[in-house]
Amino acid sequence: MSILLALLLDWSLGEPPARLHPVVWMGRYLGWAGRGLPKLSAARAFWAGGLAWGLGALLFVGVYAFLARLLGGLPWWLEVPLTALLLKPLFAFRMLLTEARAVEKALQTSLEAGRARLSFLVSRNTRQLDEDQVRESLLESISENLSDSVIAPLFWYLLLGLPGAALYRFANTADAMWGYRGEWEWAGKWAARADDLMNLLPARLTALLIWGVAPIFALGQLRAEARKTPSPNSGWPMAALALGLGVRLGKPGVYVLNPSSPSPSAGNVQLGLARVVQAGWLGGLLLAGLEVWLHFVLGISR
């Protein structure tokens, strides 16, 4: 009920203003709490980073637990839409698709424009990427973010309600800001490991959803390709999209998925976006159906 309504709100209205966006508030907290952490010794950075992560998680989960408790005392016809309003900012489906389409549109203008627009979606350096690599990075990003930005928040909402979705969104935002090697190796260790743990099931579910809308490859292939990436999770949706489109995807010098296939064309990008839309809605409707079943059959309210 709330999941489906939140999806419809996202699809029709998009993101709330930045001043009202809880993920923006999470980012501000992490920016403030992360000041100076990388300059500490390894041991101090590890424990200080873990403490800062834990306090932030406790803060945001506590706020959403309080709000969920307030909503739980309302009649269902009021609880459902208000819960959907609170859930909506914790995932971003329409924005993901809008940003992805903007990259391909920019690439049609010039390679430099495509590189610049891609930098809004990925953390890697885009300045040296050729046209094929820009499209490869774009398809990787939309498949990985289908898990991170859509399926995973809804999955954790289904399991733990609004506090679960808030915890996931905080963990994923912390990983995006702190979970890097180099100077953040130790300060961001907690953030990186928490994000890995919370994405174990959603990433694999996302891969199955991509396969479900176009079951043209063997699941054994998916497993083999997914293991090629350093991340225990991101390789699953990326490999599913690569195999489903019959293209190669990769990060220069790190990994190549489905290496015997050609690099993606503009047509492959359009088909990839269509598959992501289909898989996202399939996953959303599946989770919404499970929410209704939990409520009406088992009597469990989210």
Score class of each variant (00 low, 15 high):
193 R>E: 03
234 S>I: 11
119 S>W: 09
270 Q>H: 10
80 V>P: 03
256 V>E: 15
143 S>T: 09
54 G>K: 12
58 L>W: 15
177 M>C: 05
291 E>N: 01
251 K>W: 02
223 R>C: 00
121 L>K: 07
292 V>T: 12
262 P>W: 08
189 K>F: 15
56 G>C: 02
168 Y>H: 09
72 G>P: 02
298 L>M: 11
87 L>R: 07
223 R>S: 04
108 Q>A: 15
124 R>P: 00
137 S>I: 06
238 M>K: 08
224 A>M: 03
273 L>I: 14
52 A>F: 09
169 R>W: 00
291 E>W: 03
241 L>F: 06
192 A>R: 07
217 F>Q: 06
240 A>L: 06
12 S>L: 12
130 D>M: 00
27 G>L: 05
110 S>A: 01
53 W>S: 00
95 M>V: 13
34 G>N: 09
5 L>G: 08
55 L>C: 08
292 V>N: 00
163 P>R: 08
27 G>V: 04
170 F>R: 01
278 Q>C: 02
89 P>W: 12
95 M>D: 14
167 L>S: 10
99 E>S: 11
185 E>P: 00
31 G>A: 11
80 V>L: 07
144 E>R: 12
92 A>C: 09
6 A>H: 02
87 L>H: 05
197 L>G: 07
271 L>I: 13
234 S>P: 02
103 V>G: 03
171 A>C: 10
249 L>A: 06
194 A>V: 15
237 P>W: 07
236 W>Q: 02
230 P>M: 09
243 L>F: 07
